[in-house]
């Protein structure tokens, strides 16, 4: 019960202090909107919104979660308020869950903003919403854990941002968001399969456009494995790098 109180209050504090701040809310809206407009202008209006939607959703989740978590944790570490969490009688797993849950929720909301925009232009009635939600949730979890992993290695906020971009921008092109994985050069393709976002985007593609590389069960299973692996890495690295 005591851990639950701590967990809930860390989550509540993060949501209030970071995620509900106007710049972050506007980021969640402006970012997917500008990418959609960019694609529309580039294709001179001849674009199929349903083909664009999985990529936009994946990108919104990825950018929303990784940067927020990496930056907020590095910020708290720098101001030493994070020490307060490490000094409290909360185990590391509870702390990791509490810190990533805010980012996961933020990522999920960000991920559905392009869906809201798309609803004005296309018919979304054929979508398997349950599966879509599972994909967005797992993408948010893996991206948040990736953000945490970055935060563990960064000492300064600018380092966290640089590391985040180092991972995120290649993922835009390697994970089948806008270029299908099967059309990537044979040498690059194996890298795509090592990135969790590839499998999340594949679920979104299957449920929105009907095109996919793997079946949804396989993709979900791989995403779960990635989540556990990243969680373990975060847990281990926190103990190693934060409790010196």
């Amino acid at each position: 019960m005591k851990s639950l109180i701590a967990f809930w209050n860390i989550l509540k504090k993060d949501i209030r202090n970071y995620y509900l701040k106007p710049p972050n809310i506007s980021w969640g809206i402006i970012f997917p909107l500008s990418w959609t407009l960019m694609q529309l202008i580039r294709s001179q209006g001849n674009i199929e919104i349903s083909a664009l939607l999985p990529g936009l959703m994946s990108m919104s989740v990825l950018f929303g979660t990784t940067s927020m978590l990496a930056v907020t944790i590095t910020f708290e570490r720098k101001g030493r308020s994070f020490d307060r969490l490490l000094l409290a009688p909360i185990n590391i797993s509870t702390l990791v869950f509490a810190k990533i849950l805010g980012a996961v929720l933020f990522g999920i909301i960000n991920g559905f903003i392009p869906v809201v925009f798309a609803a004005f232009f296309i018919n979304l009635s054929g979508i398997n919403w349950g599966l879509l939600f599972v994909a967005v949730f797992l993408m948010a979890v893996t991206s948040a854990l990736l953000g945490l992993l970055i935060a563990i290695s960064a000492k300064e906020v600018f380092e966290a941002q640089t590391f985040s971009n180092f991972f995120r921008f290649p993922m835009l092109f390697l994970c089948g968001l806008f270029i299908p994985v099967d059309k990537l050069p044979a040498l690059i393709k194996p890298i795509s399969f090592l990135l969790p976002l590839t499998y999340g985007a594949d679920i979104l593609n299957s449920t929105i456009t009907g095109n996919s590389l793997f079946n949804a069960t396989f993709n979900t299973f791989v995403m779960l494995i990635f989540s556990l692996l990243l969680f373990h890495l975060c847990h281990r690295n926190i103990k190693k790098k934060w409790i010196l």
């Binding site: 005591k2 701590a6 202090n17």
Partner: peptide, 26 residues
């Protein structure tokens, strides 16, 4: 600690309540 490590954005009362919650206080 030797440096103040509370949250700048939160007020005094909120900071204390948050710290208490870390110890499971209702």
């Amino acid at each position: 600690p030797d440096e103040n490590n509370l949250y700048d954005e939160m007020n005094g009362f909120e900071n204390l309540c948050f710290c208490a919650s870390l110890y499971g206080m209702r």
